[in-house]
């Protein structure tokens, strides 16, 4: 996906929509006299992608990760992260058919989860996913 063609000329100008969505929706000039389009469903963007939360799940995950950690190897080895932006952009396009942004945002956040899970050496415990689901619903 090519976005913002006019932004060429500086490296790093390859932002996909997801990367700047929060700015388009939450920053920029607002004029009180204008009617604002309803942004129902946008709060799903606040879903945590990789956040340290004080939870048993996180503690166990960290403890396991430390067990696997090879302290003899350099701390700066390539983390082997997937090309998140590419993954998101591709999957995000599927959101088109859903129309509303809530659909697109859901697809995008799903893509994030997929990308994250694909990058994990072993499957994430089911409990963690349900826990974060619950969190979304509460928010």
């Amino acid at each position: 996906m090519t976005v913002v063609p006019a932004q060429q000329g500086g490296s790093g100008g390859t932002s996909g929509l997801y990367d700047v969505l929060e700015l388009v929706l939450d920053r920029g000039l607002v004029i009180d006299a204008f009617v604002r389009v309803s942004l129902v469903g946008i709060e799903i963007l606040k879903i945590d992608i990789r956040v340290v939360v004080a939870s048993v799940d996180t503690y166990l995950r960290f403890a396991e990760a430390c067990n696997r950690l090879d302290l003899e190897a350099g701390p700066h080895r390539s983390p082997g992260l997937p090309d998140l932006v590419g993954e998101i952009t591709e999957s995000g396009a599927r959101g088109k058919s859903k129309g509303a942004l809530s659909g697109a945002a859901q697809t995008i956040s799903d893509a994030f989860k997929e990308a994250r899970e694909e990058s994990e050496p072993e499957p994430r415990p089911r409990a963690r996913r349900t826990a974060s689901r619950r969190k979304e619903e509460q928010e």
């Binding site: 389009v37 088109k96 509303a100």
Partner: peptide, 13 residues
């Protein structure tokens, strides 16, 4: 008008 992906991109572009 709803915050559709297409329209967000158009705004941005």
């Amino acid at each position: 008008l709803r915050p559709k992906r297409r329209d967000l991109l158009a705004h941005q572009n």
